[in-house]
Design a protein around this nucleic acid. Structure first.
Lengths: 333, 333
DNA sequence: GCACTTTATAAAAACGTATTGATAATGAAA
DNA sequence: TTTCATTATCAATACGTTTTTATAAAGTGC
């Protein structure tokens, strides 16, 4: 491999001059620049990213820490981040936290030990305090789908209240009055925010929140299953059911069908997240879509702007979910 | 940040001694080792991976090139690779080829420019010749789900013939004689291998391959849709339909239901790949499962063994798919 | 106790770049 | 022409390790 030294020799200039044309920042005459570029061409010179890192203490790499590497949500997010950063010549070091405190912390440490220029993290378990502490370190931390006041400029979040509101409002507009709600684990901010939105929509239409139409599930299929079962056993009256995520909606759908409901006629069902399989369910599931790719792209942009000083980037830190209407929520008259 | 130099000073030894305990390979007395380790502890010393890379021309990083970062197949694969490599202290640089020749090549170049110690690639478009040529370079290339004779030791592949065979054989054992087959694009090796397996099963049970029960789809939902439509329009007789992947099976299922079939009674359907949504379809889809995580883990192991000289690793280069029985293929009598 | 091997440590060179301070060349203003 | 500011270049140093070569100490067999 040709080095900068050989280039300098062939071009008849010094090392530093070659370095300057490489980073084209300082004074260097057109004539010299041309000479150097030709020498590079001739030698097939490729700069060593490692040596460059050592000298400049920049690695051109961004760490990405997500809960899982599989799963539609993280897939879309990583895909967007990677595309955006790679287009800027940066690379992405990916690792997983597996929704476990030790593993999340370990993931951070791992990325820090790799000297990333920045870290984009989607973590759910570690505390705000931990993140704040970490942010005081040398490597800037950016958070996805999470809002921490003290480092709000580094947070990209999602308006889950709006999403919850949209879901329930849609059901109301479809003609439903008795709407059951299966929430997610309330220690998760996403889940509790969605519930707030649900209540907001009810209030807006003067529908009282009814405890007997409320169940807290586990964000998995079983949660939907158990929730619907709970409502039926308690002889609750409802014509629609709103779930705080798609997995639970799917569970509810299965349970409903197995217990004689004719879907979607007998029961309207709403999901949340617009996970890929919602389009394969029968009937296809109405749900709330999160602009995940946009968020990923924005996280990358934020890093490009803050860390790599790219000009002309405008930032948006809060994103809005949108409704996706499908077959599971027909109008009733 | 403390450097190796400060450690050496505090411990009262030379740089090289510190380096030796760091890589614990050479002669170093227990007493000295202890002194050095204590000094490290005291200074909170963390070795610089960059300086280490520059000096050793090893980056402890493995490039991973896949078609897409989202999608269940790649998600599982990356997840397995990452877990295995990270446990060994290596990190993973991930990038996508988007099933496009230029982008795949660009992905390779990108990873090479990052000085990865090895590259694990799942590419579908670039030619064997390109890969062979690339393998002559400085960085070893490992291939997933692809077999190239000239570099077979670096290939991890899947027995698609067996999978195709299993799928059709299962249908036959369920009691079907007239089995329609919707194949994938035949320029894809996976697709043509699965078809070979299908024919093999038919032959084994003395069932003639019937052109009127054969259709080539596009591996997407529309392919299943169009295939079933084709069979119906041509008034073909069949009680079961085997699809070369799950997306097409899903398309066929939708079309069947929309055209009055009572599933799974009127028509048995088989998919391939065991994609996540197969479990959410109605009825749930019988399919063929690929041991994707195992393959990912094995690729990582192969790299650990070849490149990082880890001892005690046994390698398996060919993997077998298995049958996943669900509701879409009931027994008929 | 001597020659010889093995073990332990040190000193120095190398990895390939960025950066800084100094110097030289050039151009503009007086 | 002189003076000063600007532009262009160079030489030297720093980045933090690994690796190689050399040398010293300790152990071995006779």
């Amino acid at each position: 491999m040709a080095t900068i030294y050989q280039v300098s020799e062939l071009a008849g200039v010094s090392l530093s001059t070659v370095s300057r044309v490489l980073n084209d920042n300082d004074y260097v005459s057109k004539k010299t620049k041309k000479k150097v570029l030709e020498a590079m061409q001739q030698l097939g010179y490729q700069p060593s990213s490692i040596a460059r890192s050592l000298a400049s203490s920049r690695t051109s790499s961004v760490g990405v820490l997500v809960s899982e590497l599989d799963g539609p949500f993280f897939g879309q997010m990583m895909s967007a981040i990677e595309q955006q950063l790679r287009a800027a010549g940066k690379h992405v070091i990916i690792t997983a936290g597996h929704s476990d405190e030790d593993k999340e912390k370990n993931g951070f440490e791992f990325l820090i030990s790799r000297n990333c220029d920045a870290i984009i993290a989607h973590v759910e378990i570690v505390s705000d305090e931990y993140l704040i502490e970490l942010s005081k370190g040398k490597i800037p931390i950016y958070l996805m789908s999470r809002y921490v006041e003290e480092i709000k400029d580094n947070c990209i979040s999602l308006d889950n209240v709006l999403g919850g509101y949209l879901a329930t409002k849609t059901m109301i507009n479809k003609g439903h009055k008795n709407i059951a709600y299966i929430a997610g684990p309330q220690f998760k901010v996403d889940a509790s925010d969605r519930l707030v939105g649900h209540k907001k929509a009810l209030a807006e239409y003067n529908i009282a929140f009814d405890e007997s139409l409320f169940y807290i599930g586990d964000f998995k299929e079983t949660g939907g299953n158990d929730g619907l079962k709970h409502f039926i056993e308690n002889k609750a009256q409802f014509s629609a059911i709103v779930c705080a995520n798609d997995e639970m909606a799917s569970g509810a759908m299965k349970f409903a069908r197995e217990h004689g409901f004719n879907l979607p006629k007998d029961l309207a069902i709403m999901g949340y997240d617009n996970v890929i399989f919602t389009n394969y369910l029968y009937p296809t599931l109405t749900t709330i879509d999160n602009p995940v790719p946009e968020m990923g792209r924005m996280a990358a942009n934020l890093v490009l702007k803050d860390i790599y000083k790219r000009p002309g980037i405008t930032i948006n830190r809060v994103f809005q979910p949108t409704l996706v209407l499908r077959d599971s929520t027909p109008d009733i008259n």
